[in-house]
């Protein structure tokens, strides 16, 4: 049962989580930006002070921002990695470590920047 412990299930779970958050947040963001452009929502609603007050200084907002950002990194890198394979480029173990390692670093940096 040695094969049971390979890392793919973890990467796939993060990919699935990211796919869900992208599908959830991205259309909402398009709607909000469109609404601001059309003047339906006043531009001040998205002012830096207001947004950073919630997303960077309020624990609830910080968690929402992390949920919106971090899983989506993993979804994107997983899609790129497996997409390359589908297109006929077969990234080896070294590139896999580089791809996912960079994503791990990016995730840690994001968490540090948002929380502290």
């Amino acid at each position: 049962m040695s094969q049971k412990r390979h890392i793919e299930p973890l990467l796939w779970s993060l990919f699935g989580a990211g796919g869900t958050t992208i599908a959830f947040f991205f259309p909402a963001m398009i709607l909000v930006v469109l609404a601001v452009s059309l003047g339906v929502i006043p531009a001040e609603a998205l002012s830096y002070e207001r947004m950073s007050g919630f997303f960077l200084n309020n624990l609830f907002g910080q968690l929402i921002l992390l949920v919106a950002l971090v899983p989506s990194y993993w979804a994107c890198i997983h899609r790129i990695y497996h997409g390359l394979h589908d297109l006929g480029f077969h990234p080896g173990a070294g590139l896999k470590v580089l791809f996912y390692g960079a994503t791990l670093v990016l995730s840690v940096i994001t968490i540090i920047l948002v929380l502290f």
């Binding site: 049962m1 049971k4 412990r5 299930p9 973890l10 699935g16």
Partner: peptide, 21 residues
């Protein structure tokens, strides 16, 4: 089965013996 596999994977850390048959 990917979903099931991901659950088994997570559980294998909580119950290491489950996969050891």
């Amino acid at each position: 089965n990917k979903l099931q596999g991901a659950q088994d994977w997570a559980l294998s850390f909580l119950m290491p013996r489950k996969g050891g048959k």
